[in-house]
Each structure stands twice: as structure tokens, then as C-alpha cells.
Design a protein around this nucleic acid. Structure first.
Length: 279
DNA sequence: CTCCGTGCCTGTGAGC
DNA sequence: TGCTCACAGGCACGGA
């Protein structure tokens, strides 16, 4: 099976490139081919709100992408298979093209989504604090994501299992299944461990592991198995450096035990029973 | 409070 | 070879 969902590093790569390439650009018009992604509002209403508007800034909150216009904000979540890319004027739409933003000249920003689970939500600027992207926990790339902050957030949820804790966007924003498994493996923590059972030293190791995994993934422009691409259709390279995710059945290079896969917090979870012992 | 199941989706690939 | 069907998981929601 080949797939990849965009998590924090992938969305960060997309947003950095969008900042350079679409900020300051005017949207001449928008085509919507799959109205379901608009979550209730009509394609006409959506198009009328944004057509003719200039993109003032692009931002990321967790896995959400925010496009700021003059008076409106568009909040996009790519979910499992959503992606943006620039395409040539003559490129025909395919069955997975869900929307096209027509920019200055004949430039097109396409939104492509095999499974149609992505969402586009419009907010007036003054209402943006009501948006889902504003109800999230701290972003691990934010300047104030310190060890002290991380520890205090963890102390609030002692009964949570660490895997659930890291996946919950209201605690830490942006982690999905891949990066939680990678982080826990590096920190040598069993995914079922209660947050309250982790000592100060383990929290420090977890914090460092999380930062390392995310910064390395960013350096390689994200993880691509099949679906994820940047704005130019290029793959990330971090999949070659994943140590635990999708490696069940392989031998752990650290301890020679066989990596196992088990459903934890409702997700397929890969971990090493030798390195990540449950306390 | 935390956990669990369900629904949304469709390409993939294991198994018959 | 061709078909069926469980599975992948981010998030919202309802209920235990």
C-alpha cells in the first residue's frame, strides 16, 4: 500500500512555497469541481467571496493552511490526500481535480484530492478566532515551544496514553501517525505509556526527539510514499530515513528484536518491543 | 476525563 | 486471471 498524508513538515513546506509564490497575487476566478469540500456553502457564494481578491499572506496552524485575503480568510485542511500544485494552462483537469485558483497571467494553483476528505472553510477576518485552526494546542515549530512549555502541557494530562496525547491536536498541533511513531521510537518510549508516568528526563528526551524528527523531515522536504508532493509535484525524501513507521516485521537495528505493529489510539502503531518497553 | 466506535472517502493489494 | 473486501488515517461526533 502506498500513501502519505501531509503532517506538519509537509504542510510547512507547502506553506513556505505558497508564501513566496502566491502572496501578492490576485485570484481572477475560482473553479470548484467538488462542492462537498466547501462544507455546506455553495460554489457560487465561495467564488464570489474570493474572486478578484489578492492573497495578503499565507500561514500554517498545525496541519491547516490559512490564506488571508482583504476581508476573508480561507482555512484549508488537506486531510489524507489533498494537495496543491501549480499547473500549466493547457493541463486538462483530471478526475481528482477538485478546485482551481486562477492567478495572474495564466498561472493556475490546482487543488487535487483523491479521497475528497479535504476541507475549505471561509471566515470573515474578525471571525477567524472561531475557526478550528484557532482551537489547537501549541505548534512545535513556534518560538515559544520550549521544554518548559512542553512539560507543563504534559503535566495537564497525566492519564493520557502518550500516543493519544501526541496525536491530539489540542495538545500539540501538527503531529500525525508517522511522526508520533518516529518520535516515540527515538525517545524509546512505549506508545501506551501514561503521560504521568514519564519522568523529567524522559520528557526531555521526548522533547529532543520530537524536535529532531521534525527538523530532519523539514530538511528533506517531508515524507512521500505516493501522494504527497510539493507545489511543483516533487516528492519529499524523508521516507528513506524513517526508522520505525511501516517497518513492522523488520529487525530493530538497535536491539535485534522484531518491530511490531498494533492498533493503539485507533491507529496502526509501529514500535520496537525491545527498545520501547512498557513500564 | 479518557477511550472507543462510526462516518466520511477511494486506491491498493491480499486472499480466494 | 479476476473479483471482493478490509485497510490506510485525520477529524468530528456521540456514547460509554
Amino acid at each position: 500500500m502506498c500513501f502519505k498524508l501531509p503532517e506538519l513538515p509537509e504542510v510547512e513546506v507547502i506553506v513556505r512555497d505558497l508564501k513566496v509564490n502566491v502572496v501578492g497575487q490576485r485570484i481572477s476566478h475560482i473553479e470548484i469541481f467538488t462542492p462537498r469540500l466547501l462544507q455546506g456553502i455553495s460554489a457560487q457564494e465561495f467564488s464570489a467571496s474570493i474572486s478578484g481578491e489578492t492573497v495578503r499572506s499565507v500561514d500554517r496552524k498545525g496541519k491547516y493552511i490559512l490564506f488571508y485575503f482583504n476581508s476573508m480568510v480561507l482555512e484549508v485542511h488537506l486531510r489524507m490526500t489533498g494537495r496543491f500544485f501549480f499547473s500549466l494552462p493547457q493541463r486538462p483537469i483530471d478526475k481528482f481535480t477538485r478546485a482551481i485558483f486562477h492567478l495572474h497571467g495564466e498561472k493556475k494553483l490546482e487543488y487535487h484530492d483523491i479521497r475528497k476528505l479535504g476541507t475549505f472553510k471561509l471566515f470573515r477576518k474578525e471571525d477567524i478566532i472561531k475557526a478550528p485552526s484557532f482551537q489547537l494546542g501549541i505548534d512545535p515549530l513556534a518560538g515559544n515551544f520550549s521544554l518548559t512549555t512542553f512539560e507543563s502541557i504534559m503535566r495537564e494530562k497525566p492519564a493520557s496514553r502518550i500516543k493519544s496525547f501526541l496525536l491530539n491536536q489540542k495538545n500539540i498541533a501538527g503531529l500525525g501517525n508517522i511522526y508520533t511513531d518516529e518520535t516515540l521510537y527515538r525517545a524509546k518510549i512505549h506508545p501506551m505509556t501514561r503521560v504521568g508516568h514519564l519522568g523529567k528526563d524522559e520528557i526531555q528526551i521526548l522533547y529532543n526527539s520530537l524536535r529532531d524528527v521534525l527538523s530532519e523531515a523539514l530538511k528533506f522536504r517531508g515524507t512521500s510514499f505516493s501522494d504527497y508532493r510539493d507545489l511543483w509535484g516533487k516528492r519529499g525524501k524523508f521516507q528513506d530515513f524513517l526508522r520505525i513507521y511501516r517497518r513492522s516485521g523488520e529487525t530493530c537495528p538497535e536491539c535485534d528484536q522484531v518491530i511490531i505493529r498494533q492498533v493503539i489510539a485507533g491507529r496502526g502503531t509501529c514500535f520496537c518491543p525491545g527498545c520501547q518497553r512498557q513500564k
